[in-house]
């Protein structure tokens, strides 16, 4: 673990961005996915957990989230346009956020490379499993 350079109070005397663990694309994509998730999660929470409460209270459905209801929703293409980015963006944003914490702790070099590949593997497995979970609603319906 390389030492993290000290920052100075003088704004003109600062370590180079890459020495404090900064790189453009992780930073930029964290902002883009974050802003997109504010919209996507609002839609997700509203449609899955607020719409339909009346029917559950009236006894029309046993639960708010049922296999048949999710399957019906996923018959429309628009919900794949919402749910697939939701799966990918949340995974990237969450796992890149964990990497940002490691960068703040001063993880650099070989350990950082290992961590990046580990988090990428976790994200890839979770994404494939999540896509399988979505496809299952079409296969078993």
């Amino acid at each position: 673990m390389a030492a993290v350079p000290r920052t100075s109070r003088d704004p003109l005397v600062q370590p180079r961005p890459r020495d404090v663990g900064f790189s453009f694309w992780p930073w930029f994509l964290q902002r883009v996915t974050g802003a997109a998730l504010v919209v996507l999660l609002f839609v997700h929470l509203w449609v899955n957990h607020i719409v339909g409460i009346d029917e559950v209270e009236a006894g029309v459905y046993e639960d708010l989230v049922l296999f048949s209801l999710v399957a019906d929703r996923l018959n429309e293409v628009i919900w794949w346009v919402v749910d697939v980015p939701l799966l990918g963006f949340t995974l990237f944003h969450g796992l890149n956020g964990l990497r940002n914490i490691a960068l703040d702790w001063g993880v650099r070099g070989r350990n950082l490379t290992l961590l990046t590949w580990f988090l990428t593997a976790v994200g890839a497995v979770a994404f494939v499993f999540g896509m399988g979970a979505l496809l299952a609603f079409q296969l078993y319906d």
């Binding site: 296999f67 956020g97 914490i101 999540g130 979970a133 078993y140």
Partner: peptide
């Protein structure tokens, strides 16, 4: 960190759909 841990749990719970309709419900 909490939301990332929740996300993994959430994907596993919703992923019960791969075991069929009854298991999911």
């Amino acid at each position: 960190v909490f939301l990332t841990l929740y996300l993994i749990t959430h994907i596993i719970v919703i992923g019960q759909s791969v075991r069929g309709k009854e298991a999911f419900d």
